[in-house]
Design a protein around this nucleic acid. Structure first.
Lengths: 220, 220
DNA sequence: GCACTATAGTAACGTTGTTTTCATACGACG
DNA sequence: CGTCGTATGAAAACAACGTTACTATAGTGC
């Protein structure tokens, strides 16, 4: 016989809401810590201290640190999905281009989340199968936009899923190097646009006009 | 007055060689540990135990764990550079394509190193400025091959450095997602080829013939 | 009132990177 | 040859981490 309040009573609702509030507070704290001090600052003790409770609470809510990491991981993909969904454009191709910019903008605005999603800054954390499945939703959003382009004849051939994965890899590659600041991100935006444009053009019946590239190189 | 043997004596040479041997042994041990058991197994105590000494030795040689990580980081980029340098082809474009495959092959064959290079599995490790500069060498190798393509007229316009960075981002994006096994790596190789091909084609005067893509999608 | 369960705080355990302590070995120098 | 000083390495200690008992308490159902 459980000590949990009987379901349906007003008290049970309040009780459940308290738990939700606790969970939300924990996630907010973890999220703030992550964004302001990076993944290294994301320790159980620190989250608990910031909340003003002991670490036990975190373990009853999330089970382990991986539980928190997974929630943040999913939050990162949820933000990405929302960012992609909000992309608009007068025609399918413009909408796809808007998605590209949304991808980059979201990554730059949520660097810490992006690192949790695609790097492995939290030792021992591996997303569950369910979380992995969920993380494919942004890709599905992208694939829908690609399908629209195929229907409109903007793209010539190929499976929407496959094309979306190619575009995804292009976005990720460009953004990933930009975030790593691997080689001075001076022309990072142009590189992003070029790579995405190149990948998209690859699937079009005719290659579209390319934006200006740095001055032509003199040939000897 | 130091207890270090006077420079120039045979003993000094032997002494220095002993230090080199020790350093090499430590790196070999760390490297093996990294490749066989992943970054998580790369602990100071374990490296020391595997070598048969105490952790103090590692600290006198490398200063800190980051010192070891940095050496492995550089080793990873050195392998990548070698892999790219060894790429051959009958003409500039073929050589560039060979470099693309070399990039992917090297990454797949050295997953642990690739993760050290582009993920952050070792908390607190950040490559030094010098190491970062050194890590740009593979990019320079790529840029040289791009320059050859420009000279040969295979590429139409653009700075070799810039084009190389775009190709680099494409390679990294495709390989990175493949290694993360982000969405089933069934057609990972084709995706890699397509993305690299698309990026390269972007800078050519005429779009080259594209290899076959999955069956055309029926339009409603 | 009583038993039982869920929860939270305290303190511990084992492991990590790192530092300290201490002993020892060995070149330099009187 | 003996002493000094420095470099080096082993052992242990330290701080911080994730995690797990242990304990107390509060609240539900009988």
């Amino acid at each position: 016989m459980p000590a949990r309040p009987t379901d349906g009573t007003p008290y049970a609702a309040a009780h459940a809401e308290g738990k939700r509030a606790l969970r939300t507070l924990a996630l907010d704290t973890a999220s703030t810590l992550l964004e302001q001090h990076g993944p290294a600052a994301l320790t159980m003790r620190r989250i608990a201290a910031e909340m003003g409770c002991s670490t036990t609470v975190l373990y009853t809510i999330f089970g382990s640190k991986s539980g928190i990491a997974e929630t943040l991981w999913r939050e990162g993909f949820a933000r990405l999905r929302t960012a992609l969904e909000e992309a608009r454009g007068p025609d399918p191709l413009a909408r796809l281009a808007a998605m590209g910019h949304a991808y980059r903008r979201n990554a730059l605005a949520n660097r810490a989340y992006y690192s949790i999603m695609f790097q492995r800054p939290i030792p021992g954390f591996q997303p569950s199968e369910q979380a992995r499945a969920e993380s494919l939703e942004p890709l599905r959003v992208l694939a829908d936009a690609v399908a629209d382009c195929l229907d409109a004849g903007v793209f010539e051939r190929g499976e929407p899923d496959y094309i979306a994965r190619v575009l995804w890899a292009a976005s990720h590659g460009a953004v990933s190097l930009e975030l790593a600041d691997y080689e001075g991100a001076a022309d990072a935006e142009q590189r992003f646009d070029d790579l995405i444009g190149a990948a998209a053009a690859w699937f079009m019946p005719e290659r579209p006009a390319r934006p200006d590239v740095p001055a032509p190189r003199p040939r000897p």
